[in-house]
Design a protein around this nucleic acid. Structure first.
Lengths: 162, 162
DNA sequence: TATTGTTATACTCTATAACTATA
DNA sequence: TATAGTTATAGAGTATAACAATA
């Protein structure tokens, strides 16, 4: 019974939950329900960008982490993003095939592979990161900068645990 | 390309994303990333309760909405919870088979079915709701009551949109 | 003609077991 | 013996199309 950070059976976007006249106030009292709805909303906004580049959310996460951690291994990526190793393989193959990532021999561990963005991959990732960063105000439903800071801080307090 | 509120390919719990030495600071600047991690954390805490009763998150959501909206139709449930009608059928069949929900003829629309909790279903739902409500402090990573109120308010501002 | 509920089914994402090569 | 990466496959969740019954 496990769950990674990445993926959902499908990209988030439409099929929004809109109470349709029903009382959902108990669910709305739960942090998990509210956080999930907010995540779907925010990720839905960013999805437009990802799809423009033929990326899924998880592809972007991998590219972004690799951009800031050149030479990271598959295992490190899996731990950082909550992906299971078998599921990362096809994902990386896709990024390699599209010329955005390359596997290089690991400098010190013959079992491991060092993952690097290609110049094209780095350009793409920079562009998507910049676009997504510019969408944060919209993705947060129009929160002020101060509210957004507070929200991010509280969310991190939640998932960093008690 | 759509997504409901309910479900994830699996219940949330373990496989937590724990940066493992990698820099994920860009992702941590995104509301969608933080909200998703927080949702997985909070729902993971509640999962222990759900599993005790043989419920998935989505089962509990349906039961809770039915408890507060007796006589609701499938269509209303689907809209409120972001479930697609074909996927609600098996879910309801399961709840009916376990004696928690019953389908009654709709009083005014012969096409529709009025959904009601049985007495046993109502008892169960009350108990799970109470247990989950009592877990909110833990599910929010130990936030104070004031922080939790602020967080829920901001999250609702996000998904209720700009 | 439109809507409710349903069936069948395809697709995506997530999980587990087992194998290889190296440590 | 343990770990990194991989393969194959099972399992769970989400999607679309199409049908019968009723409005």
């Amino acid at each position: 019974m496990s769950r990674g950070l990445e993926g959902d059976a499908a990209p988030a976007e439409a099929a929004e939950a809109v109470p349709a006249g029903l009382d959902t106030s108990f669910l709305e009292s739960l942090i998990g329900y509210n956080a999930r709805r907010a995540a779907l909303y925010a990720i839905g906004v960013d999805m437009e960008v990802f799809e423009t580049f033929g990326l899924r959310v998880v592809d972007f996460s991998v590219l972004s982490v690799l951009r800031h951690n050149p030479g990271a291994t598959s295992r490190q990526l899996c731990q950082a993003l909550g992906i299971l190793p078998p599921n990362l393989v096809a994902l990386l193959n896709g990024l390699v095939k599209r010329g955005w990532v390359e596997r290089r021999p690991h400098p010190s561990d013959g079992r491991a592979v060092a993952l690097h963005l290609t110049p094209a991959g780095a350009r793409l990732t920079r562009e998507v990161e910049a676009t997504v960063a510019g969408l944060e105000k919209r993705a947060s439903g129009g929160l002020t900068a101060a509210e957004l800071r507070t929200l991010n801080r509280l969310l991190q307090k939640v998932y960093l645990g008690e």
